[in-house]
Design a protein around this nucleic acid. Sequence first.
DNA 1: AAGACTACCAACCGCTATCCT
DNA 2: CAGGATAGCGGTTGGTAGTCT
Length: 299
Amino acid sequence: MGRPPCCEKGGVKKGPWTPEEDLVLVSYVQDHGPGNWRAVPTNTGLMRCSKSCRLRWTNHLRPGIKCGNFSDQEEKLIIHLQALLGNRWAAIASYMPERTDNDIKNYWNTHLKKKFTRTGAAGAEARSGRWAAPRGQWERRLQTDIHTARQALREALSLDPAPLSTKPPEQLPQPTAPASQATSYASSAENIARLLEGWWSMHPGAAGKVSSGSRSSSVSVSVFSDDDGVISASNSGGTAAARTPEASIRMTKADGEGTAGPGPGPSFSMLESWLLDDAMGHGDTGLVTVPMGDPCDFF
DNA sequence: AAGACTACCAACCGCTATCCT
DNA sequence: CAGGATAGCGGTTGGTAGTCT
């Protein structure tokens, strides 16, 4: 059923987000939690469509997001998961809670895809369309159902964190595994620090002298959190490092992400055990030769 | 030094799934 | 149950910085 794009109405701003807009969005989400995105533009006064707000939050402002280069482990995991799941970036991202689907997708398109097309051997099955080609909806549903079923089972049985795998739990990346509260909290501070760098570079008078670069600012921004869960930020790169009220954001530790994933680690399916065994290090370059048999073998 | 080219990534667009009335 | 509204996903595009010629 067709419907007009959400951004069709006039007066909607497009293009890169400004640090001010980020601040508005972050503080709003901290107050109200993620979700109900259609209310965000009206409640915040942001001239952005709800979709854009959601995307900005999930891809850049959300707590727990890791920026920067992908590690070898992450790269291998992506390769492995892509071979297994195809271009289902959201599903892949669920195994890498610190990365966004957009991030993974970009990394795949810019780094890994060309690597594969060059080597020729890797991901042959994926490219052949056996797995990576657009899969039927039943498969998409199936993938979702596996996770849902496992989560439901775990909840029903109230499983303790001890996984069936022989690996220690901390080595097991898990689908939609939330970062620990502390980690998530710290990461959100990092995210805010990043956006504040930009803010300060655009408002040098707000807190002392800053020098700004294009993509990477030389400004060093510190973000503090006190016992009350209040995050405040200051730029320490300038000569007048100071906490600035206008840049101080209130965040409560209880807030976190509303879409927190499952709790303690789930038991690993055969599929996941296979997947992670290789991806987590004691596999080698044989990673890409996915031992993919008949899909029915997994179920 | 300047223009062309390439790489990267943020953001947008269109579609489907799901929710709600 | 039907149909509209919203959320989420994947593909694609556009802008910018870096590199090459």
